[in-house]
Amino acid sequence: MNVFRLAGDMTHLISVLVLLLKIHTIKSCAGVSLKTQELYALVFSTRYLDIFTDFTSLYNTVMKLIFLGSSFSIVWYMRHHKLVQRSYDKDHDTFRHQFLVLPCLILALLIHEQFTFKEVMWTFSIYLEAVAILPQLVLLQRTRNIDNLTGQYVFFLGAYRSLYILNWIYRYFTEPHYVHWISTTSMFCVVLFCFGFTIFKWYLISVLLLTLSAWMSGFVQTLLYADFFYYYINSWKNNVKLTLQA
């Protein structure tokens, strides 16, 4: 466990807990994409299948339970809590997430390390996590405004992914048997940046790139936040309301 990974887990924890607490206290989910929350609940469910069979550490198990609990609670609030439900913007949150789930499932069935149910489900969760934020980013682009609830949520998620990449780089240099993925990944990241930040292109490219490896999906996921970070920091610097360009 290195400092980057611990910091990454903490920012990931903060992002989900801040979202859950805010929805619980102000009883509103304005600006939050239910599709993204459902995708995250699916990511955690398919990734933590081994929560009761393989014990890594108390920290690992507790964090898994918190992530599972918080993601399902957020989905429950947005689907069944009568007050919260009213503030859900279903007219704009129309990203057909089956277009994300199916390609990731097919990719996981084609490209994995071993053909076992747990391994394929784990690979599927890695691919899906990379694109799970897309409905939320599309919703932000459509509604054009970002109230601080969603802004902080996406910001902390982006911070979590960036710290995880630092964690991978750190492990690459400290653990000898780490894979030599930096070269391929960095090469494709350059290509990715050349394509620009429109969501649709991001979606196509990111699904395409997932085929390379689980590492790639981590990188792709972080790159998806790149343009959001750019706008978020600019708005924070100029102290203006954050609006995203089309």
Binding site: R5, D9, H12, D50, D54, T56, N60, M63, K64, F67, H112, E113, E119, W122, T123, I126, Y164, N167, R171, E175, H177, Y178, V179, W181, S213, A214, W215
Partner: peptide
């Protein structure tokens, strides 16, 4: 293998 390395991560 890659995925074993990543398994101890969340």
């Amino acid at each position: 293998e890659d995925s074993e390395l990543l398994k101890d991560e969340l």
